[in-house]
Computed example of a mutant assay.
Amino acid sequence: MTPQDFAELAVDIGFAMLIVALVLAFIRLILGPSLPDRVVALDMMTVLIVAFCGLFSISTGDRAFLDVAIVLALVGFLATVALARFAERRVSRREDEELESLE
């Protein structure tokens, strides 16, 4: 087995593992009993798609996909921060309502 064949095999195995991880994260996104579970699943899917772009860039030798991966990582980070802030506000509103009902 040449180093070129080994690299191709490693990339193919990486693609397969990423696809399995994406399916599992999507299942968690659909079934996740709470909002934080869904936020973490969505963030994980974003990271996996960034990894997929990186592997595809390695596989094809096209560096343009690395730019796509960087932009997607930045957008995914901002989306995760926004969803976490939304979840935090939702919890604080619920706590405020419970305090008001006790008074």
Rank of each mutant, 00 (worst) to 15 (best):
L55T: 05
T2I: 00
T46M: 09
P3V: 07
E98M: 13
R94A: 15
L24H: 04
R63H: 08
T60W: 02
E98A: 13
I27A: 08
F56A: 12
V91G: 06
D37Y: 02
A21L: 06
T46P: 08
A21Q: 05
I13T: 13
S92K: 14
L18G: 07
R28I: 09
D12P: 01
A7Q: 15
A69H: 00
E95G: 03
C53K: 00
F77Q: 08
D37S: 04
A73I: 04
L102G: 11
V71L: 09
M17I: 11
A16S: 10
V39M: 04
D96N: 12
V39K: 05
E88P: 02
R89S: 07
G61L: 01
L102I: 14
R93C: 01
A41K: 04
G76D: 05
I19P: 05
D62G: 00
P33N: 11
T46G: 15
R90I: 03
A79G: 11
V68T: 12
P33A: 11
I49A: 13
F77P: 11
D67N: 12
A64S: 13
P36K: 03
L72Q: 06
F86V: 13
F86G: 15
F56G: 14
L42Y: 08
I70Q: 02
L66Y: 00
I58V: 15
R63N: 09
V71M: 05
V11D: 15
A64E: 06
L9Y: 07
V50A: 09
I30W: 11
T2Q: 08
I70M: 12
L55A: 07
P3L: 08
L74P: 09
F6G: 08
D37E: 10
E97A: 15
E97R: 12
I13Q: 14
R38E: 07
S57H: 00
F65P: 03
E88N: 13
T60Y: 01
E88Y: 10
L66T: 00
